[in-house]
Simulated assay, not measured.
Amino acid sequence: MRDVLFVPFYDGTELVVATDGSAAIGEKEKDIVHAPYDVVAYFAARVAFMEVLSVGAKLHAVVLQNFVHDEAWETLCNGIRRTCQELHIDIPVIGSSETNFPTLQSAVGITVVGTVQTERKRVGITPKDAKFAVIGEPLVGDEVLKRNERVLSLSLFQALLRQTCIYEIVPIGSKGIYYELQQLLQANGLAFSSCSCKLPLFASAGPSTAILISYHPCVEEEVKKIAKSLFFPLFID
């Protein structure tokens, strides 16, 4: 299952909803990973944005759930705005802050709402002769900040979205490459007995620091040219 909810809306159009959250990451003393709140919101937002955009949808609104404290609201919004700026979009942000009780660790939730025409969904369209690759490296926690150059950038993500011979794009989450590949193949009625890649197949990719793509063999060289050292072929049997 993709981490996206599709809801029939009107005239062949569907609502698309995706969400991401982070906990114990922030500026509080008991947080496990220490990072500024705009950075926390940026990475949480990019996950939800990528999920919605990867299925061919248009973005409409962002919902922010702030469990840090009320004073963090504007800083968190700045992180979301940074995501929007990198994607060259402008959409409204609404949400709520926990103001009744203090929390010992930081927590943030971000939900993105979009729409897509059913006939244009980039889901379940990978053919049997498709090739597969991972773009970016699976990173989590402090690694995301320390090895930022190995994180799939949003500009690269958008460049890959524009490639018409890339069938499907799947943001990789905490369950890793193998899980996302398994889900993608099952959704397309495809089976495999084994797979191999230079990257660790079961490592968490945290805030979608990498994506899985299925593509027509004819565009492999073009994709390699765009992704450069972040291109990792994924072989299945």
Rank of each mutant, 00 (worst) to 15 (best):
A130W: 00
K131L: 14
F132E: 01
A133G: 08
V134L: 07
V134E: 00
I135W: 01
I135G: 02
I135D: 02
G136C: 05
E137I: 09
P138Q: 07
V140A: 15
V140H: 13
D142Y: 09
V144D: 01
V144I: 12
V144P: 00
L145N: 05
L145T: 10
L145D: 02
L145G: 02
L145Q: 08
K146Q: 12
K146C: 06
R147Q: 13
R147A: 11
N148F: 11
N148K: 13
E149L: 12
V151E: 00
L152A: 04
L152E: 01
S153G: 14
S153W: 07
L154V: 10
L154R: 04
S155W: 07
L156Q: 09
L156H: 07
L156D: 10
F157L: 10
F157W: 08
Q158G: 06
A159T: 15
Q163G: 10
Q163R: 14
T164E: 15
C165H: 15
C165D: 15
C165W: 15
C165P: 10
I166Q: 09
Y167C: 13
E168Y: 10
I169C: 04
V170K: 08
V170Y: 13
P171I: 05
P171R: 08
I172V: 10
I172S: 00
G173W: 03
G173Y: 04
G173C: 09
S174Y: 08
S174K: 11
K175D: 08
G176N: 07
G176Y: 06
G176F: 06
G176R: 04
I177W: 03
Y179M: 09
L181Y: 00
L185D: 00
L185V: 04
N188R: 12
N188M: 10
G189F: 08
S193G: 15
S193Q: 14
C195N: 01
C195H: 03
C197N: 06
K198F: 04
L199Y: 01
L199N: 02
